[in-house]
């Protein structure tokens, strides 16, 4: 029982990180129909900012906002430079563009920083642990869960109460009609990228705080997982992305913890098998988007 609870905490921490990443993918996809595989490189950028801040002796308290600022800015820049020229192209064109952006950034990281994994200086407190009701919980896990909850509440408030948040939901449902209301396409899309960059930055900090290192390909695996999570939840649906992220986190952690040792090497195929099973039962995902039909302009 204790092991189960312990692993549940781990699952919430990992699932939360997947949820933030999947949300970032979903926000952009819901607005412009782009699956941004370069989302992972936004994480890597935030990771490198943390690393350089550590090297420069800048306190972690200041490094975190700097990292978030960097990934947010990079996301907006990415849209402006790479995705705006292909905005009205097919989904395939945009997807390939995002792969190109990802690869260019990876090569830049490898050549300008290092091919190898670099250590990131983290505050001592993050690697400690605290006792809650007989459970030993890592501070970094706790921070991950709390940060995820804060981000989800923040995003939910923004999308339900703020004029620009409501405009983003309107644009996600029917982009052309949102424009007829006077909602500027460029503003909404830049806003979606800024939010996705912010989410990638938070996820990067949580990811790095579990590993204390950053490498040029750091973003690839988590974003692939987030992509699976977004599909699992229903591509383009924000609530679905969160649900899918948590479900994938739970599947991975529980399989790692409770699968017999002989089967451990089949952990990933079994996990993805479960994902396929869910999709067979719910082909549009757990919580499908309201308007897959709506035309993206």
């Amino acid at each position: 029982m204790e092991l189960f609870l312990q692993q549940t905490v781990n699952a919430f921490a990992l699932g939360g990180t997947y949820a933030l990443l999947a949300l970032g993918l979903a926000v952009v996809f819901s607005i412009m129909g782009l699956i941004n595989f370069a989302h992972g490189e936004l994480m890597t950028i935030a990771g490198y900012v943390l690393m350089y801040c550590g090297l420069a002796g800048i306190s972690f308290v200041f490094a975190v906002p700097l990292a978030l600022l960097a990934s947010t800015f990079a996301a907006v820049l990415m849209e402006r430079v790479a995705f705006r020229p292909v905005r009205n192209s097919s989904g395939a064109t945009m997807l390939v563009t995002s792969f190109a952006v990802a690869m260019i950034l990876q090569v830049l990281f490898q050549n300008l920083i290092s091919v190898r994994s670099q250590p990131v200086l983290l505050p001592e407190a993050l690697s400690g642990s605290i006792m809650i009701g007989g459970l030993v919980i890592g501070v970094n896990k706790l921070v991950a869960i709390i940060s995820t909850v804060i981000m989800l509440i923040f995003l939910d408030r923004f999308l339900s109460k703020q004029k620009y948040g409501i405009a983003m939901r309107a644009a996600a449902e029917d982009f052309a009609v949102a424009r007829l209301m006077g909602i500027r396409a460029n503003t909404v899309i830049a806003g979606a990228f800024a939010i996705s960059g912010l989410l990638a930055g938070v996820a990067a900090i949580l990811w790095v705080s579990q590993r204390a290192s950053v490498d040029p390909l750091m973003g690839f695996t988590p974003v692939l997982k987030a992509f699976i999570a977004a599909i699992l939840g229903g591509l383009g649906s924000l609530r679905g992305a969160v649900a899918g992220g948590f479900l994938l986190g739970f599947i991975e952690i529980y399989l790692a913890a409770f699968l017999p040792p002989a089967l451990q090497e089949f952990r990933d195929p079994i996990g993805l098998g479960l994902v396929v099973l869910v999709l067979l039962m719910r082909p549009n995902g757990l919580l499908p988007a309201a308007s897959l039909k709506a035309e993206k302009v």
Binding site: A167, A170, E173, V177, M181, G182, A290
Partner: peptide
């Protein structure tokens, strides 16, 4: 527009608020 195309996932008031966006 043709076919009404109200924002079905937004409330009535939010739809109207979007009409006054600018």
């Amino acid at each position: 527009p043709e076919g009404r195309r109200v924002f079905g996932t937004l409330s009535v008031a939010e739809n109207l608020q979007m009409g006054a966006f600018g």
